[in-house]
């Protein structure tokens, strides 16, 4: 390029750093990741390997563990679709309409990111706990919230609802409403417009948001811990079960479940990476932070 012709001794881009700086930055990142991610995760897997396949299978096939896996998967299976609907609705409202209190709504969506998960859980205890008016009423009607599945579900939804909305809002704002207007001017109904035009425009960001939301829904500890009551085989999710096993000095068991949970998260990560490789810029568009 012209740059190289005029300054043959410095054949590099104006914005790139000297080789030393580049290597240093890469090295720092690599060491940091190794120390804080690979080593701990490796330890988890290592412990499982050392304890042996038999021990792993024993722990996983225990009825309490099975129940924890089932609970975690069913909470995620319910919370994610719930947040999918909410996320699309909120993103649609914020990106495509003008209304009073829009900024306030946007801030509210970020609330779970800024509030400690413990407080998120505590909110539901204060709303539906044994000392409240509502809690005992619902329990008497055979629908307990706290120390039961509904409470765990509510806490999980609360903690994970920003993920999908956050993913969609910047993308939908950038896209504007021209495509939708074109569709309705051609005679499409609102629903047809959504299915045929809006959804295809946001599908990758949506999928990415769903993956993030799912990863967090399965891994949430703090908020769920407050509302669950830690009843073994009943209200213990995988993260809670790991802690319980560990506190019982069943370290191998704890690591076995932990490795399984980590594997679930890894599947999510790998899916995400595959999406990014395949649809590069498209997926990256809607990323937050």
């Amino acid at each position: 390029m012209a740059d190289q012709q005029s300054a043959p001794h410095h054949p590099r881009d104006a914005v790139s750093e000297p080789a030393l700086v580049r290597w240093l930055l890469i090295l720092i990142s690599a060491i940091f990741l190794a120390l804080f991610l690979v080593v701990p995760l490796g330890t988890v897997v290592g412990r499982v390997v050392v304890a042996g396949w038999g021990s792993f299978v024993d722990t996983i096939s225990e009825s309490d563990t099975q129940s924890a896996i089932r609970l975690t998967l069913s909470v995620a299976a319910l919370a994610v679709p719930f947040n999918l609907v909410f996320g699309i609705a909120a993103a649609w409202a914020i990106a495509k309409f003008e209304f009073k209190g829009k900024t306030f709504l946007t801030t509210l969506i970020d609330l779970p990111f800024s509030v400690s998960p413990v407080i998120s859980g505590l909110v539901y205890v204060l709303l539906f706990g044994a000392d409240t008016w509502l809690g005992p009423q619902l329990k008497a009607m055979g629908f307990p919230i706290i120390f039961a599945f509904p409470g765990i579900f509510l806490a999980t939804v609360f903690v994970t609802f920003p993920f999908i909305a956050r993913e969609l809002i910047p993308l939908m704002q950038a896209q504007g409403t021209a495509d939708e207007e074109a569709a309705i001017s051609l005679g499409a109904s609102g629903w047809q417009t959504f299915i045929r035009v809006t959804l295809p425009n946001i599908k990758w960001a949506l999928l990415y948001g769903v993956l993030l939301c799912n990863a967090r829904a399965m891994g949430e500890f703090g908020a769920v811990s407050v509302v669950s009551g830690h009843v073994r085989g009943k209200t213990e999710t995988m993260p809670l079960h790991i802690e319980a096993l560990y506190n019982d000095y069943s370290t191998d068991g704890a690591f076995a479940v932990a490795s399984l949970l980590a594997a679930l998260a890894l599947v999510t990560l790998i899916l995400r990476t595959l999406l990014e490789v395949k649809f590069g810029a498209d997926v990256g568009n809607g990323r937050h932070k």
Binding site: E181, A182, A183, I184, S185
Partner: peptide, 20 residues
Amino acid sequence: KSVQERNVGFVFQHYALFKH
């Protein structure tokens, strides 16, 4: 009348073609 009922052909400034 709604846009759908009016049956008008509208060409948008930046065309608004469906990219997919």
